[in-house]
């Protein structure tokens, strides 16, 4: 028991190090600048974030529906004029067609539930599993007392048809 606790304590720094390295790599990956985008790359990246308002599950980038083509043209026009950045163009289209046109929901207001709920459920599930495993381990470690044995013996004596062995 003492040895396992000590080995657990020894492995903590390694886990911590792995955690820090993972967070650093994620931060570097997320903040990495791919360099200046061409106009076409901007148009493609914006239209990939927008859902075709008349199709199911297709992006404006992929769809050939009339409404999607109109939106693509509008994005191209706004990129060409250079008066709005990508977020402002997406906001313009969202304002006209509503939130359903966003393929990736916003992280504010009611839409934020899409992001918050899965994380909350994951954390609660992991916590629940951890608590359950700990309880099981604790229960496994229990040694039946004389009272427990007496109780089982008495119950078995009351029900002679039950032939299960009494655990020792």
């Amino acid at each position: 028991m003492e040895r396992s606790r000590s080995s657990r304590l020894k492995s903590w720094p390694m886990w911590m190090l792995m955690g820090v390295v993972t967070v650093c790599l994620l931060a570097i990956g997320a903040g990495r600048d791919g360099g200046p985008l061409t106009q076409q790359e901007r148009i493609d990246s914006i239209t990939k974030r927008l859902a075709c308002p008349t199709c199911d599950g297709e992006s404006v980038f992929v769809s050939q529906a009339s409404a999607a083509v109109n939106i693509k043209n509008e994005v191209a026009r706004q990129v060409a004029t250079g008066q709005r950045d990508d977020e402002e163009i997406v906001a313009f289209i969202e304002e006209r067609f509503g939130g359903r046109v966003l393929l990736v929901p916003r992280a504010t207001g009611f839409d934020s539930l899409v992001w918050v709920l899965p994380v909350t459920v994951l954390v609660c599930s992991v916590a629940g599993l951890a608590a359950t495993f700990r309880r099981w381990r604790r229960e496994q470690g229990l040694v039946p007392s004389d009272d427990d044995r007496a109780l089982v013996a008495r119950l078995l004596a009351e029900d002679p048809e039950d032939n299960d062995e009494v655990p020792r």
């Binding site: 308002p53 008349t54 043209n73 289209i93 067609f97 509503g98």
Partner: peptide, 13 residues
């Protein structure tokens, strides 16, 4: 022709 009026009004269908 370029759909700009439809987009300006948010017309999909």
């Amino acid at each position: 022709d370029d759909g700009s009026i439809a987009v300006a009004f948010g017309v999909a269908k």
